[in-house]
Amino acid sequence: MADAVFKTVFAGPHASIQDGGRRGLMRFGVPASGPMDRKSFALANLALGKDADAAGIEISMGGLVLDCVSGATTLAIAGGGFIVERDGARLGSWSTLPIRAGQKLTIRPGPWGSWTYLAFAGKLTATQWLGSAATHALSGFGGGKLTTGQEITITDAIQHSDAITAIACPIWARPRQHLHVVLGPQDRYFSAAALQALLTEPFYLTSAYDRMGLRLRGPSLAPDAALSIPSEAILRGSVQVSGDGVPTVLLSDHQTTGGYPKIATVLADDLDGFVQLRTNDAVAFKAITAPQAVQLARTRAAAIATVYAKVRDLAGR
């Protein structure tokens, strides 16, 4: 099978190569990285019959323009409500489409969402670091950010069909404003008033938003004491509060340890929808117990697996 080659005509600031991420290395200062919205990324791959964790491209609201300069392949785009154009003909995200040499693909922000994902029928050639092509933004390790002029090579490229096909956008791929948290592990450093504010007041996304984390605006959650605690592990989903009372939700490229107290931690599955919100959108936190969180994770996982299986089956036809 042949290669398909694309040239990057324009890449926004946060376009990068991602895959399922590199797990198990947080003890060495290395977060998993990988897609901000993991489920949409998986759906783009599954729609092409690929492994859910295969390497693809993450695109922010900065957008991406690619020229196909040789070969042919099929693309899948999932995540957010972006505008996708092939040679000017307008499509939505959540579709698979054939593309061949001489055609141009344009992806730019649309009515909703902050991230979209591009998967290719074939193998995206990417630099690996520690067994993964996921880009760690701070260091640039992994497949890396896309830059204008860069070539992207898809080996073993195949074109599935001439048809443009829709990928059904599941309800859980939409932006999520209600986030489940388990309080802690340092909720003990916060007053009853701060905990109540966290769980009853709205918070708003600020523009201080990148792959490391997202700062929120809302009532001050200043901790009672312990401006800094002995540095300890941070996870994707940790809600850490700096000394001035401002909460930040840590995301895919989070620091692995830090000394700010964590008032709460977001259910892992809620984060995919959370990252699709935009600046000034509101979020509300709801506390659940640890057993409820595990139960919710299992219920969600079962429903997600059903959708994944359906998308995979359709791709097989």
């Binding site: 198990g24 592990a233 640890a290 969180a293």
Partner: peptide
């Protein structure tokens, strides 16, 4: 078990909630 992250005074243990739970 997925991974453990040692720090100054504590150890964080990350696990797959589809296989096990906190208890």
């Amino acid at each position: 078990f997925r991974e453990a992250i040692p720090a100054f005074v504590n150890l964080l243990v990350d696990f797959d909630p589809l296989i096990t739970d906190h208890r």
